[in-house]
Every structure is written in structure tokens, then in C-alpha cells.
Amino acid sequence: MDKSTIVCRCEEINVDEIEGAIRMGASTFDDIKRLTRCGMGPCQSKICMNLVRELIANNLGVSISEIPPPRMRMPLKITRLGILAGKTSSSNVVSVFDEASLEAGER
């Protein structure tokens, strides 16, 4: 297979880049994701998940059943920020200005 073949359509990561990450010691989808951005685009690894798992399995000489899937992240589908925003009473979210005093231990 041509090593420049795209695996991750969104971030346009190819076979060579994924195998490079595996050579660095990456053994899960998430390891590869952090090194290459593979699977970080709008489809969130929905298309490349099993392609990458297969590449890892082949390169490491193990069964694909051994390779865990990437961690799924919310929102499960791309969602406009405005639609996501909900009016809730703020509890854990603080402005950075408060954060300065928090870090300084001024509580």
C-alpha cells in the first residue's frame, strides 16, 4: 500500500504518519490521535476508527480485538455553539479573573 494514502479524511493523516506514531511506541488509537491529530476532525474518528485499529494490529502483530476504540467525546455530532449554550446556573465555571485569585490561594 502506498504510504501516502490518507487514512483520516478529516485531518488528512496518512498511513506513514500513523505508522511513525506506532514506531514511537503508540499502541492505541488515542496515543496516535494525540501525536498525529488522526481522528480529531469533525467526524471524530467515526470513519477511520477501524482503519487505524487495523493498522495498529498489523504493525504490532496482534489481533484487532486487542486494540481498544478511541474515547468518544461529546458532542457526539458537530453542534453549533449557540445551540449548545444553555441557560444554567453557573457552578463550576469561573472567569479567568477569578482564577487568578484562586491560583493565588485567596479563598
Binding site: 490518507i6 479524511r9 485531518e11 488528512e12 467526524c43 470513519i47 455530532k77
Partner: peptide, 19 residues
């Protein structure tokens, strides 16, 4: 596409691939 400037079109037709 954003990086390699390659053509994109319909692929999965199910709202998953974002192509």
C-alpha cells in the same frame, strides 16, 4: 479539503463522515 486541497464530495450519506 483543508490541508491538501483535495476534492471532496458525498461519501457516507448518513451524516457521519463530514465530507
Amino acid at each position: 479539503s483543508r490541508k491538501l486541497r483535495q476534492s471532496r464530495g458525498l461519501f457516507c450519506a448518513n451524516g457521519r463522515c463530514c465530507s
